[in-house]
Design a binder for these strands. Structure first.
Length: 284
DNA sequence: AGCCCGTCCTGAGGGC
DNA sequence: TGCCCTCAGGACGGGC
């Protein structure tokens, strides 16, 4: 599933590949995947890509003349830019292709989304920052303004377990299931620990862990478990060295104990029962 | 406010 | 071989 490192990787790729390209046609193969909230005269055709921004897991492609395309990939979305030859070798379009943008140069941008949860939404650029989803996002962990004090304040805003808080995009923008589990293992914090029981030391460890886990994954081009591909159609390799995600029953890389899998906040949650001690174990 | 569930969806994988 | 069932889960809306 595309989280911050995957979306950042796609952003970097799209910035290389489609900035300056002019849209010549838009094919919508699954209507729910594409919607316009812009005036009817504001269509993408005839407009050039000016740049790509990322807000948490959301990508915003800005065009000239106050038009932007917001892209949320959710679970299985892909944005792959390909020349006709590259599209042939990648076998695109395929049965999961929902939208195709064709540029005047012949380059095409494929929005693939097996599960159809993702969305492309056309909006005026001047309304992007006031979009309800974007406006309510918490701080971005890769932003310089993200500090241990800010993490402390954000976690205090939510009274739930720490795993649920990390998944909440209002607390932090961009962390999803994979990196929440990896960061909690790295910081040696049990996923069910209530946010108000976290010590200052634990929060500082968690802060460092979030940053290092995300940075490492960006360096490795993100995580490909099933669907994720970069803008060039390549896989990410982070999961080759993941410590807990997808490793239930395998030995902990720190102590050898079998990695456990439980359900927290409705998501499959992986942790080391020895390295990540349960909360309030002394009061049980 | 927080929790849980349903909704949106397809395809992989387990069981028989 | 094949079919049915469960599971995977990001974000959101509704009910309690």
């Amino acid at each position: 599933m595309p989280e911050l490192p995957e979306v950042a990787t796609i952003r970097a790729g799209l910035t290389r590949l489609i900035v300056g390209e002019e849209v010549s046609s838009v094919e919508v193969l699954w209507p729910k995947s594409y919607q316009s909230r812009a005036p009817t005269d504001q269509e993408l055709v005839g407009h050039k890509v000016q740049g790509i921004r990322r807000f948490g897991k959301l990508l915003v492609i800005d065009f000239d003349s106050n038009i932007s395309l917001m892209a949320h990939l959710r679970m299985t979305g892909q944005l792959i830019a390909a020349s006709p030859q590259q599209a042939d070798s990648l076998a695109l379009p395929d049965r999961s292709t929902r939208v195709i943008l064709t540029f005047a140069s012949g380059l095409r941008l494929f929005f693939n989304d097996q599960r159809k949860f993702g969305r492309l939404v056309v909006v005026p650029t001047d309304r992007v920052s006031s979009d309800p989803f974007i406006a309510s996002l918490g701080p971005d962990p890769t932003d310089e303004a993200f500090t241990p004090a800010k993490l402390t304040a954000r976690l205090a805003s939510r009274r739930t377990n720490v795993k649920g808080a990390l998944l909440d995009q209002h607390v932090l923008a961009g962390v999803g299931n994979i990196y929440a589990d990896e960061a909690l293992w790295t910081a040696m914090i049990h996923p069910l620990t209530p946010t108000d029981e976290l010590t200052g030391t634990q929060i500082r460890r968690l802060y460092s862990a979030i940053k290092s886990v995300l940075t490492t994954s960006i360096d490795r081009g993100g995580s490909t478990s099933r669907n994720y591909l970069s803008a060039e159609g390549t896989r990410g390799t982070y999961l080759d060295q993941a410590c807990v995600y997808g490793r239930a029953g395998q030995p902990c890389r720190r102590c050898g104990t079998q990695i456990a899998k439980i359900k927290v906040a409705g998501r499959g949650t992986h942790y080391c029962p020895r390295c990540q001690k349960p909360p309030s174990c002394h009061s049980l």
